[in-house]
Nucleic acid binder design. Structure first.
Lengths: 218, 218
DNA sequence: GTCTATAATCCGATAGAC
DNA sequence: GTCTATCGGATTATAGAC
């Protein structure tokens, strides 16, 4: 019954974290909600951070579920747009999970965090796939899909984290519009054609013989 | 001598925070480093978070100093580019301050956080000014400078926070290059001309009579 | 007014009996 | 596997000496 107990603990841990947040999360409270004493938990989890690491795992499961919905789109453009929207939906509907996934405590320094790192890579891969598709459909310029994915991911995450921290004071509805508009700006570019051309030249000079388009052709 | 004492505490608090980070920051340690006991601190600061709020203020002072350096640039383009670079410099040279400013604990829910909110607005204003300049110099398309500023700010912050959290595993040197390249992508745009035009059309439809260029002309 | 001493209450984690 | 007991440490509040 060891595994069952672990699952029961994890379920309660998720509830507790979602209800009381990171500050209100303690092993003693968790034990109380399970009807046992704190030391009993250490038979199943080595530390509090180990528990939170599994909570992160649950958060990823939810996020993947959201993003998976974007694959229902019929065209690459649908899937590309929906991916961005579903990511926003996840952040606004599960802000606590979003925080523990992307803004929370450093779980990275914990051994056994490879699972989290893998999930991060999987996420990067997901964006990369959507971009590759969109490039194939003629929506995006042919460039390194991973690099472009990082740009889009960073922009979306930056917006969301600033909003969740209250640094962009507005309503959810207003933020949804801002998110959409800002993503459109990233796609169309902020610079003038003249300036963009000059940046491209500088780029070509800094990496001679490695045109940015050639590497994504294969 | 009440104010002097407060300053002494704040100076030690900054040192302690920069040395031991957020986890290692405690009122006891702070009191020890000052040669007093913990309860004495509560004569000058109502809570630990109040102390951290002042530390945040110090962080802002440093950031403003960095950004102020960008104003030394002679042309709008210089100032525009240097602003982005100085922001990166600050993040990499003072990651602890960057964390407490943009990724740290929620100080927003604290009363007396207006100062922080004001500083956030001032930061937004700074970006807005740089963009306005760059638009005037023909570098950026004429659009709402505040909205474009949020886009650029969010992208830079997203990149930096992902890197500082270890989700973009690479060296500082590599990250500097990624930061530069990704910013260039935001300026040139990720979408094809065809897709960008279509997005502009959708935009015009969703806000009829309010062309995105006209509002920034005045 | 300023500081010390003490204590209450919480936390994470461990040892050892059952 | 679970309990009791306990350690070491944290925040916070109160009482009282100087």
């Amino acid at each position: 019954m060891s595994i069952e107990q672990r699952d029961r603990i994890l379920a309660c841990a998720c509830d507790l974290y979602l209800a009381d947040g990171l500050d209100g999360f303690s092993m003693r409270k968790l034990a109380r909600s399970l009807g046992v004493t704190a030391p009993a938990l250490y038979r199943h989890y080595g530390s509090k951070e180990r528990v939170l690491l599994d909570v992160v795992g649950e958060g990823y499961r939810h996020l993947v579920q959201y993003l998976h919905g974007a694959l229902q789109g019929r065209t690459p453009e649908d899937r590309f747009r929906m991916a961005g929207e579903r990511f926003l939906d996840f952040a606004l509907e599960h802000p606590r999970y979003y925080e523990v996934l992307f803004m929370g405590v450093d779980l990275v320094r914990l051994e056994g965090h490879e699972e989290v790192a893998d999930q991060g890579c999987a996420l990067n891969q997901f964006w990369s796939d959507r971009l590759r598709e969109a490039m194939g459909a003629g929506l995006l310029e042919l460039r390194d899909p991973e690099a472009s994915g990082v740009t889009l991911w960073a922009h979306s995450h930056g917006l969301i984290s600033l909003y969740l921290k209250g640094m962009l004071p507005m309503s959810d509805e207003e933020f949804r519009k801002l998110y959409r508009d800002s993503n459109a700006r990233v796609l169309t570019g902020l610079g003038t054609r003249h300036y963009a051309d000059r940046l491209a030249e500088e780029r070509a000079e800094s990496t001679p013989g490695m045109g940015s388009t050639t590497e994504a052709v294969g």
